[in-house]
Amino acid sequence: MKTLTYLFSVTLCCFGLYVLETEGNMFNVYNVASRIQEISTFVSAIGDAGLKNNLTGSSQFTLFAPTNEAFNELPANVKNNKTLMKSIVMYHITKGMLTHKRILDDSTVDSLLQGAKLRLNKYGFQSFALPTICITGVNADYFDVHASNGIIYILEKVIYPFPKQNAYEVAARSTDFSTLSFLLVKDKLDALLKNAPHVTVFAPTNKAFQNVPSKTMSNLLSNQTALDNVLKFHVLQSTYYTAAIPRRSGKLVLTTESTKRVTFYTGEDGVLYVDEAKVLTSNITLTNGVLHIIDKVLIPH
């Protein structure tokens, strides 16, 4: 189990780390954050961004604070860009006190960065174990660290780059998905991927389509119903990052837009799969969900 290094006393409880209340605003959200050594880089970045005074007053905020190790993994050109670093800090803060119990799965909140929303996912909350909390696809190692005017979550990664494209735009603007994007338009499914607020897309590459038997591919191109069934077998109107896969079973059964089910799981070889397709790249965050790149076209049985 991971531990945090605090420079003051806290009370432990089953749903997080609760800071002992003190007189005045000594333990405001900025001061609490500054006493957690593992997020000192984020705290310094708050000061550099000129946001310290915002967090020490009476207004309420929730901080999604990446660890120092996470910041160290950022490219040097990002860390040395003051304007970009300020945007990154602002993207990791939202107004209000948002405890994990108040998070609704597949919801969004406005960050302090103008026009940029954070996607909140809560997986496993129906079991007796603590839920897995994801903030725009990044796992929270700790949550519900309380302060007098806010809440702190500690993230294992920095949320960067920011999501700027919806599901269809990612497919249409990449040469790796030219076949997929063509078929989405042909089936008129592109509108769903543009406009649905929450989607998961298992996206086959061009090579995956090239490996489809010619007879099957000809049928898809000539039979609208068959094409619709296959494409919808790759789409869900909910957001499922890999964090949604239960740790104990390693398998997650999902109902797709075709009403057929797929299994999203970790194989014995440690590789991610969707049914028989390998996941080549996972957790590509979209403005309206997540996309996983797969090496085979899924054919519903």
Rank of each mutant, 00 (worst) to 15 (best):
T3E: 05
T3A: 02
Y6V: 00
L12E: 03
C13P: 02
C14I: 10
G16P: 00
E21G: 13
G24L: 09
N25Q: 14
M26H: 08
F27H: 07
F27K: 08
V29K: 02
Y30P: 00
I39N: 00
F42C: 09
S44L: 10
A49V: 12
G50S: 02
S59V: 03
T62F: 05
L63S: 05
E73L: 14
L74S: 07
A76L: 11
N80S: 13
T83W: 14
L84Q: 09
K86W: 12
K86G: 13
Y91P: 03
Y91V: 06
T94M: 07
T94L: 06
T94S: 11
K95P: 11
H100Y: 13
D106N: 14
D106Y: 08
S107E: 03
T108S: 10
T108C: 06
V109E: 09
D110H: 13
S111K: 02
R119F: 12
Y123W: 03
G124S: 03
G124H: 08
F125P: 15
T132C: 09
C134K: 10
I135F: 05
T136Y: 03
N139V: 14
Y142F: 12
F143K: 10
F143T: 13
D144Y: 00
A147M: 07
S148Q: 10
N149H: 02
I152P: 00
I152M: 01
Y153C: 05
K157Y: 12
P161M: 03
P161K: 02
P163Y: 08
Q165F: 15
V170H: 12
A171H: 10
A172I: 08
R173F: 15
F177G: 02
T179S: 03
T179P: 03
L180G: 03
L184Q: 02
L189M: 11
L189G: 13
L192D: 12
K194V: 12
N195A: 15
A196V: 04
P197S: 12
V199G: 13
V199C: 11
A203D: 01
A203K: 00
A208G: 01
N211H: 14
S214C: 14
T216G: 04
N219V: 14
L221K: 15
A226S: 13
V230T: 05
V230A: 03
L231S: 04
L231M: 01
T239W: 10
T242N: 06
P246C: 00
S249N: 06
S249K: 07
K251S: 14
L252Q: 04
T255A: 04
T256G: 01
E257L: 15
R261Q: 15
V262N: 09
T266I: 14
V279N: 10
V279C: 11
L280Q: 07
S282V: 11
I284E: 13
I284G: 11
V290P: 02
V290L: 09
I293C: 10
D295K: 02
D295L: 01
D295Q: 03
I299T: 10
I299S: 07
P300V: 02
H301F: 15
